[in-house]
């Protein structure tokens, strides 16, 4: 009985400690962004919003953020579109080498990003293709492709396959079954897959750094450049805005589609 209580205390405190560990950097960033000091100090001695107006001083920040947004959106859309047939095949059908193919599709998660970056760089040099935003897009797609596959498989595994059979026996062709039944079952997986892909692409540094050339630049690269030259809290101000927007999107997606449960179970 008392051992049980002890265990509960332990788990509860461990949980809170983990939460603190995760939340602390976020809180720190937000607090520092309102600091009045030239340097990053915590807790701040004075308050100001100057660093928010200073965001514009980050080199090419507008242009870089726009490109990052574009690449992230395209990466999300394209990888999700490609993941649908892959997930359908893996979740609904049996075929030779299924395990191996599944492991292969999910493998980018397990390979260090630097390794992926070098591999993609070598590949593009070998093909002789010019380095432009398309190469960047392909690089990001390789990096994030595993996430939508995972979330879509989770969605399909949770959905009831007899729904599709019911639709078929009511006269629906395969395509109609997909359009009218499967797709709506997939919605949480689609949304969370897109969000994963989008967010990972949007703030990716290690892959992008290998692939940007000739004036092309992304948001994380410019923020990193700024940090390496200046130590003021401008990046913290930028990050705070970023955190607020992303939190809003995730809260909306969870309320509307219940996507978090999917990524946890997946």
């Amino acid at each position: 009985m008392s051992e049980d209580r002890l265990f509960r205390y332990f788990i509860t405190w461990l949980g809170w400690a983990a939460m603190l560990f995760l939340v602390f950097p976020v809180v720190l960033t937000v607090v520092v962004s309102f600091s009045g000091s030239q340097f990053i100090e915590f807790p701040p001695k004075s308050l100001s919003v100057d660093w928010y107006t200073n965001i514009a001083k980050i080199n090419k920040i507008g242009e870089a953020t726009l490109l990052s947004l574009l690449i992230a959106a395209l990466t999300g859309l394209l990888t999700v579109a490609m993941a649908i047939p892959a997930a359908l095949a893996l979740a609904r059908y049996d075929f030779p080498c299924k395990g191996a193919i599944s492991a292969f599709l999910l493998s980018p998660v397990a390979v260090p990003m630097i390794a992926i970056g070098i591999a993609i760089l070598q590949f593009f040099i070998w093909t002789g293709l010019p380095f432009n935003w398309l190469t960047l897009l392909v690089g990001h797609m390789v990096l994030v492709s595993a996430y939508p596959v995972r979330t879509l498989i989770a969605s399909l595994t949770l959905s009831n396959p007899s729904l599709e059979e019911a639709a078929a026996s009511l006269g629906a062709s395969r395509w109609t079954v997909f359009r009218t039944v499967t797709l709506s079952q997939l919605t949480p997986g689609l949304i969370s897959g897109f969000l994963f892909a989008f967010l990972i692409s949007f703030d990716n540094y290690p892959i992008s750094i290998f692939l940007v050339r000739s004036g092309l630049t992304t948001m994380p690269i410019e923020v990193f450049n700024y940090i390496s030259q200046q130590l003021d809290p401008t990046p913290a101000a930028f990050s705070t805005i970023y955190i607020i927007i992303v939190s809003a999107i995730i809260i909306f997606a969870e309320r509307r589609f219940g996507v978090i449960s999917l990524s946890v179970k997946g």
Partner: peptide
Amino acid sequence: PNRRNVGLVFQDYALF
């Protein structure tokens, strides 16, 4: 199945 004109009621109903 979609060409057979068979009505099927599943054990778990499988309502959309």
